[in-house]
């Protein structure tokens, strides 16, 4: 292609520099991942007979599910209202508990032992999937919405307290010091120096959390914690696939609507 013979006689080489420069590390990671993947897949107990049988079952489920059956609209509505009630109460309860826990878990406000306690509470609340919490509460307080409310309260604390604590750690200390210098008491400082700064975030978080709790309440019901999830589980257990599909469709619709509303409100406030 080139007529210029005075430069290099042999064509120069170029290779893209590898993503990880160290070849040992590169190949080690690659081989390690390949071995893991191969091993992980072999541990899967594939039962092909069961799977092929499952295809027929799938056909039967879907056949039974169409068309969705909205005949028991009353039951559906009742389940939904219960989910909504669970979501509202657990959001309020969760928010109320989140505020003190967030102050406990803010390094710039709380002394070290209290800070650690606050952090541990948040970590524990965040680590457990709400369904696990729900199953424990169902065992402790019985089937029904109480277990759902308690579960989602903990779920709310895990998220809201964490975000709020982070916000408190970022507040502008100038305002707090200005108040302190006028000789104000601690709680008044919190009320006028800290709360106004975290309030917008708090409202946004609350709406977001209400939306999440509504979604989650559909799930924790599956293990017996009340709401639409329990209705769905019952329908599934009784092989009422057409009613189960109807419930699922309504859940999807409600989630989409609630997501749109919460997004709208948060855009206006945040």
């Amino acid at each position: 292609m080139s007529s210029n013979t005075t430069t290099a006689t042999t064509p120069r080489q170029w290779r893209k520099a590898p993503f990880i420069a160290n070849p040992w590390l590169r190949w080690g990671l690659l081989i390690g991942f390949a071995i893991y993947a191969a091993w992980a897949i072999t541990t899967l107990p594939f039962d092909w007979a069961r799977i092929s049988e499952g295809m027929e079952r799938a056909a039967r489920i879907f056949g039974g599910a169409f068309p969705p059956n909205f005949d028991r609209g009353g039951l559906l509505l009742k389940g939904f209202l219960e989910s909504l009630q669970i979501a509202i109460l657990s959001t309020l309860l969760g928010l109320a508990l989140s505020v003190p826990i967030a102050f406990m878990a803010a390094r710039n406000i709380a002394p070290l032992p209290i800070y650690l306690l606050g952090r541990i509470l948040i970590i524990v609340a965040r680590s457990f999937h709400p369904v696990i919490v729900a199953i424990l509460f169902v065992k402790a307080v019985g089937f029904g919405p109480v277990a759902g409310i308690l579960t989602l309260t903990i779920y709310s604390i895990g998220f809201v307290a964490k975000m709020l604590a982070e916000r408190i750690e970022e507040i502008d200390w100038g305002q707090v010091e200005a108040l302190r210098s006028t000789g104000t008491g601690t709680f008044t400082v919190l009320q006028f120096g800290v709360l106004p700064q975290i309030m917008p975030r708090q409202i946004g978080l609350s709406i977001y959390q209400l939306d999440s709790n509504l979604r989650a309440s559909a799930v924790v019901g599956i293990v017996g914690a009340g709401g639409i999830g329990s209705t769905l589980m019952n329908a599934f257990g009784r092989y009422d696939y057409d009613f189960a599909l109807a419930i699922t469709l309504v859940i999807i619709a409600v989630i989409l609507v609630s997501e749109a509303i919460s997004g709208r409100i948060r855009k206006n406030i945040w």
Partner: peptide
């Protein structure tokens, strides 16, 4: 794979120079 033909690489170096 970024395995460009040798003559393309050579030409690229010449033009870049």
């Amino acid at each position: 794979l970024r395995r460009y033909p040798a003559e393309d690489i050579e030409r690229a170096f010449q033009l870049m120079e």
